[in-house]
Design a protein around this nucleic acid. Sequence first.
DNA 1: TATGAATGAGCGTTCATTCAT
DNA 2: TATGAATGAACGCTCATTCAT
Lengths: 199, 199, 199, 199
Amino acid sequence: MPEAVAALTERGARTRERILLAAREVFEEQGFLDTRITHITRRARVAYGSFYTYFPTKEAVFFELADRLFEDMTTHEPATAATPAERIRGVNRAYYEAYRRNARLMAIVEQVATFNEEFAGRRRAHRAWHVERSARAIRRWQRDGAVDATLDPRMAARALAAMVDHSLYLWLVHDGGPDAGTLLDTLDALTARALGLPG
Amino acid sequence: MPEAVAALTERGARTRERILLAAREVFEEQGFLDTRITHITRRARVAYGSFYTYFPTKEAVFFELADRLFEDMTTHEPATAATPAERIRGVNRAYYEAYRRNARLMAIVEQVATFNEEFAGRRRAHRAWHVERSARAIRRWQRDGAVDATLDPRMAARALAAMVDHSLYLWLVHDGGPDAGTLLDTLDALTARALGLPG
Amino acid sequence: MPEAVAALTERGARTRERILLAAREVFEEQGFLDTRITHITRRARVAYGSFYTYFPTKEAVFFELADRLFEDMTTHEPATAATPAERIRGVNRAYYEAYRRNARLMAIVEQVATFNEEFAGRRRAHRAWHVERSARAIRRWQRDGAVDATLDPRMAARALAAMVDHSLYLWLVHDGGPDAGTLLDTLDALTARALGLPG
Amino acid sequence: MPEAVAALTERGARTRERILLAAREVFEEQGFLDTRITHITRRARVAYGSFYTYFPTKEAVFFELADRLFEDMTTHEPATAATPAERIRGVNRAYYEAYRRNARLMAIVEQVATFNEEFAGRRRAHRAWHVERSARAIRRWQRDGAVDATLDPRMAARALAAMVDHSLYLWLVHDGGPDAGTLLDTLDALTARALGLPG
DNA sequence: TATGAATGAGCGTTCATTCAT
DNA sequence: TATGAATGAACGCTCATTCAT
């Protein structure tokens, strides 16, 4: 979120991009806390001072990377589906793919969110957007009679999103194995049954 | 100049406890990263150096607090229940109570787990213990015919534990409201239905 | 934040040199142990952190100063001499001059060698080089019949080097007087006679 | 050099001795600088505070150990000898034996003398006493016509003492081998010849 | 724009010494 | 005497940020 993006020359834009790329790599390898500005500039093959030509702080680069990440996590929508169960399956698979692509950076996102209040806010907003979308789907399905009307749609969306999100986090960032197939099948099944959808 | 002594005098044990208590308070208020040893010693009303009489590092106090915390999160078992659904409800409520008691410190636990590999390992082990216990229950219910036999018990336990755990984390640490009643009811309902238990 | 860089700009090289110079002065005045990094940076009129731009530790500056010192103690060779006795006299005077120039730092060299094993090793190597050179001369003189062949040349070189070295150390660092003439004459005479050379 | 030795009870004297013994061991193993009061008290199996019951500072124990050491290095006199050469040989052997017994502590003596001005003074006085005794012997031998009268007796004594002392230091503390025979023979021979004594 | 040297506040840790019991 | 807990000044090192060129 640079204040003066417009003013960048072609060359400047390239340097900026090199720094962003390098920062992502280093953050993923070392974590935010252990990353030094030197690590980033060395990786980007630019001078130490050049970092501050484009970003005011270490947080700033990270925020921009996270913005791009959230964008990427949101835009890859699955094709439309015939039934709610298929819809759920499609969304879960798409989310899994996006998470897998970005797992290393997602780990850093969790890290930074635990000590940077501002960033925690952004993360919350991003999550709320997801939850809200799910809640709308559940409400729709309740109106259609496909889902039990006694469920609180917002709360159910929260809980199911937490299940999927945290399961993927633990699997892809911490102690998952090579095969996520069973995990994904289980998530699909649990979600569908929890909502009372026909398998 | 004893280093993390085993044998303590009565007086020494008291001072050590004061430091632990103070550390917990400060960690909860400032987070692990922003906590300075001075903050802890000032709060405990002991000299700066006294911290190091009892703990070799800031990590060490935290680890001990976390051990006590895990202990507390594990030992408060609910009364026995008649049906699986009642059992789930009981476990969830007990876990919620324990989480609520310790929410502030749990937030720090998440923080430290994101950058301290050793601690992440301990946390993983603690989580695995919980999951394993749930998996055993699910297997039992499957043998009894109460739960669909096609579900992978270990994976289902993982996912449902992730749901409950992360929901409580988000609610109690981040953006929950004063009333957790609906959340708990939703968690109970979703868990029971996901497993195919009669409401 | 470069760590002990090889490539330096002109300006960087100047600053580095200022720090080295200041370090030598402070070491000579206070000794290695009582020297604080602040003392050095204050003397050099640079910021505290600038010390660490060029040297990783206090030991590192000292090692570099010692390397230069050993270089200086080694390279000032006396003019060639006609007789062994004249040769001895020439070497002794040259060594005395070099020692006098560097007496304050030599004192610190002794200090550091008593507690830093790595440095003691370097010092030993430097001494061995000197002893070996003397041993070669003694062997040559033995072949020429000028020196008694029953003497162990290596051991004699060791002992005589110890005599000269330690005498100068005690004289120039500890309790010598203003006039070293008698000392030098005595060292020349004792060395020559000990080897059985004609006065 | 305790101020209140007289007031020690039998039990107190024993504790004090235990501390002195332990201190010597630890100093020898770790050096003065790396020795901590705890190391000493642990080794002596006394309470931390007991150290300060008997010695005001770390330096104080060391000074007392050094006093005893100097005493031991001085009092073991060789049997009377017939000729100056035999006398020299006898003194050198006795000094070698004493040095060998105390080599580890002598190393620490050198260490402390490099940074403690007060102790350097004591060491100087001890050395002066030795040198003076040698100078007297040389003067006597000069009067007897056994040694060349042109030699400055004080200066020669200084130089020859430096030779023996430093040779033994380097041999026993730094890089000597198991067999000191050749070294001692060389020292005897060099000393005798340097003074012009008949072998 | 690009460079890399300069800055200095900040913090963890050590350990000799004191003191209450 | 003996004990061991309590004290806190001291110092090395880090590293984000600034600045001169």
